[in-house]
Design a protein around this nucleic acid. Structure first.
Lengths: 232, 232
DNA sequence: TAATCATTTTGACCTAAGTCAAACGACTTG
DNA sequence: CAAGTCGTTTGACTTAGGTCAAAATGATTA
């Protein structure tokens, strides 16, 4: 792996080779195994991460011990960049902690740590970079908006929406065959519910002939019905 | 009112008088009465707003007809700036709509509309402005994070947190006397519940001698108990 | 001041979804 | 291959908080 990997990161796409080399040479690169923590929300903030390989979940631990997953991060995406821009002073003085927890959810997940100070220098001299950052944050914000919106829906609606969304993504085998990239447990957490409820909802969908579920493979048998549920 | 009002807007605090005058002269300024809609989520995106006087609620209308308030916006704060940075191309071509609804919640609410094109030009030549924008978005993101986190809590906890938060804000009469700046209906919606449940929760707190509620005036009788509820 | 309207409260009821406990199937590992 | 271990499922039970309908309170205006 070399600095060219950074070219795939939207945030850095406007930078020249010189900058990329410099950043890469100073970055921290490490391999994580499945289930290994990247950071806790109690640790001092060092900088943000880029997923080079594998994937990561970002989550809050709720008062009742449950976890609520905010994002799944796939290769070439970044996470934990918010504090960098929010608490400039505190970050400089190491007084700031990560705002959530992060854990690798695949073996051989490779992460690149970009330390705060690198970015502060870059921003000064690059206004296209600023636009990238702004745009990235805006997208996350929209993601959160949708997430909140969905919480008022019942679990069947949330699940139906999720499956339909997945069936459109690149990770789908085809229009009617979704292979979950995450465990059912993580899916419950992402949907804001618990394993049992998710399991029952899957069963319900199967009984109604809407889905066929086999492990992580989900076959859509009745797309219209699924859409109907997700809508109203 | 003149262009100096823009100096109070964090986003613009680094700009010189010339820029401010220019922006002000091209801005749209309008007075809204209570309950008047600023925009619907079906309208084409024109630009973002600054609250000069009064206040505004930003909300989603949920599938079941309920509204879920995302933010209350007070003077000198901005709202609806996200699409500006997220969908550059679409915004330019008028293909983008507002991502939520906004309504004035006080009479004589004065809003300033900053059209998208103004900002695109400014960003090019001002990297401090970028930092401001980034920081502003980061704060909103954190707000949404907290909001999501709170949804897993039960209503008494959410209400207790809210009251404690308010008691610390400038709008509080004193440490133990909060005057709600919003209607009880809007408060339920903000807390993600309904009028009846909020009303019952207030009653419960009164019965337990924790609060004294009279219209929009809330007197904290037992702060420790309130804290305890909000915690765990 | 009556009359109309909006806001808040109350009561009776119901249901989605959480809790707890146990069993199950699929892998991995000694 | 037996013994764990992990992820998932099932069953029985409980409850927070939503729905609906109606009353009470407060505010506004003719």
């Amino acid at each position: 792996m070399d600095s060219s990997i950074l070219r795939n990161v939207n945030l850095f796409s406007e930078l020249d080779d010189e900058d990329l080399d410099k950043i890469y040479s100073r970055a921290g690169i490490r391999k994580f195994s499945k289930g290994e923590m990247v950071f806790f929300d109690t640790e001092p903030y060092l900088g943000f991460y880029i997923v080079a390989e594998g994937s990561v979940k970002v989550f809050k631990i709720l008062k009742d011990g449950r976890e609520h997953i905010l994002y799944f991060i796939k290769p070439f995406n970044t996470f934990a960049e918010v504090p960098l821009f929010e608490q400039y002073e505190k970050v400089r003085n190491d007084e700031f902690t990560y705002p959530a927890n992060a854990m690798a959810i695949e073996d051989d997940t490779v992460l690149i740590l970009i330390r705060s100070s690198e970015i502060y220098n870059l921003i000064e001299k690059n206004s296209r970079l600023c636009m990238k950052i702004i745009s990235g944050l805006a997208k996350k914000l929209r993601h959160m908006n949708k997430h909140i919106e969905s919480i008022s829906l019942d679990v069947p609606k949330r699940l139906a929406k999720f499956i339909l969304e997945e069936s459109k993504s690149e990770t789908a085998k085809n229009e009617l065959h979704v292979e979950l990239q995450i465990s059912k447990h993580d899916l419950s957490s992402y949907l804001g519910t618990i394993d049992e409820t998710l399991s029952r909802t899957f069963k319900k969908f199967q009984d109604e002939g809407i889905l066929e579920v086999s492990g992580r493979n989900i076959y859509i048998k009745n797309k219209e019905a699924l859409k109907k549920i997700s809508k109203d």
